[in-house]
Design a binder for these strands. Structure first.
Lengths: 229, 229
DNA sequence: CTAGCTTCTGTTGTATACAAGAAGGCGAGG
DNA sequence: CCTCGCCTTCTTGTATACAACAGAAGCTAG
């Protein structure tokens, strides 16, 4: 779920992973220009591997290359965020359904532990601790589905959404944290009951709630510009 | 829905489209080696654009590059076909739901015409005429959803499935052609009724039926090897 | 005859040089 | 002061040269 190719295959693989990570983490903000020569110097390689890495990130939807002008970090428009959430709902719904049908597997145990940690963080109103936990929850659902293509498409999706930042923002809304935990518990219950479609719908409801909160949390603040430390 | 970038931007765009088309059409069969120098000569360019095109096709899942060995046309395993159909079900279900909620748009009219053509072909038991028609039906559903990210992911999906060939194979099974038409009509009826979830489920049922037929039609014949004219 | 090593060929990976175009600055003319 | 046009500069796009490695063929020794 973390990387797309065999590890340490060459400079190219390393560069593309580092670049993707940097963009997702916010090291490069939306609109920033990614000069090939600058990146080449930074990573200590020539333009060629950088170029191929940028091309790959373009297909993944993270950057936009304007011919003979430059490569820029892409910022999803508000409309695009809506579109991505609609797809996210379907893919995670599928993940939950497939996981439910698999019965007790490694991921179910991990989900149990994850929900315990989330409950702790929720009781303490600790958004900083809860945020990565919810991220892990969604990740476990999809990984537990045991569908490699789903994992692939899902990763592209979350990359484009700059997911962590959005979720953190939405969790600060009052009451959302408790509601989120309740929704996740509902999904988990359906999963252990092997109720495939029940799990799918619980998951979809959860994603819809998440979308609603994210859109409201970012209503006036249109996925802000430039970088910000 | 056809191309991924601006048209005629440069040799690279042309090459990647031609290559993709050639692979999907079966000009290069699964397992065939795609030598960069050979392709460069064929397309009259240097290795560089070819290389970038192949890298893009790799991300799209059409080819597999083995480091310092070669690039080969990827053949989806049986397991992978199942995985892809599971995702296809969700994405097309989403498309049908979104289209239904949009009400009367250009695509609905096109769908009406498409169903008429399909009915004609079905009456004549003309699989060769029906096959592209069913392809168009699915395409119109997704395009009509007016969700660019959905269209993007969907295209990757169908590319990997070598969709046309599989569908054609499945339609030859007795009775499948009529059943397919009935399922498509059900989807269309829900769409015109603006019944979003009804449309989603009708579409998902249709895709499931399609998957079942495809898997049975290719049961003993494991997505055959090499090229075949 | 066979096992193991060597070499050799073919492939991709990387670096670099050059070409073509876009964007912005700068000056002349109104 | 504004506007138009040129021109400079910076960017990416393409071609090519070289390096590194995989894989197979062939050779040698036992």
């Amino acid at each position: 779920m973390t990387r797309t190719a065999d590890p340490a295959q060459g400079p190219r693989t390393r560069v593309v992973d580092e670049l993707r990570e940097a963009i997702i983490r916010g090291r490069y903000g939306p609109g920033d220009s990614l000069s090939e020569v600058v990146l080449a110097e930074i990573h200590g390689v020539s333009r060629t591997p950088i170029r191929e890495a940028l091309k790959q990130l373009q297909v993944e939807g993270l950057v936009e290359v304007r011919s003979r002008v430059g490569t820029f970090v892409r910022r999803p428009s508000r409309r695009e965020v809506v579109e991505l959430f609609q797809i996210k709902e379907m893919l995670e719904g599928l993940g939950a359904r497939l996981l439910a049908l698999r019965g007790e597997v490694a991921e179910t145990a991990l989900l149990r532990e994850n929900l315990l940690r989330s409950a702790h963080a929720a009781r303490d109103r600790d958004v900083e601790a809860y945020s990565p936990s919810v991220h892990e929850f969604h990740d476990l659902i999809v990984r537990g589905a045991d569908n490699t293509r789903l994992a692939h498409h899902y990763r592209q999706l979350t990359n484009q959404l700059a997911y962590p930042r959005l979720v953190t923002a939405s969790l600060r809304r009052p009451g959302r944290l408790e509601a989120s935990l309740g929704e996740q518990r509902a999904v988990f219950d359906r999963v252990v009951e092997k109720d495939g479609f029940g799990a799918e719908w619980a998951m979809r409801d959860h994603v819809r709630a998440l979308e609603r909160e994210v859109m409201m949390a970012t209503a006036a603040d249109p996925l802000r510009d430039r970088r910000d430390p």
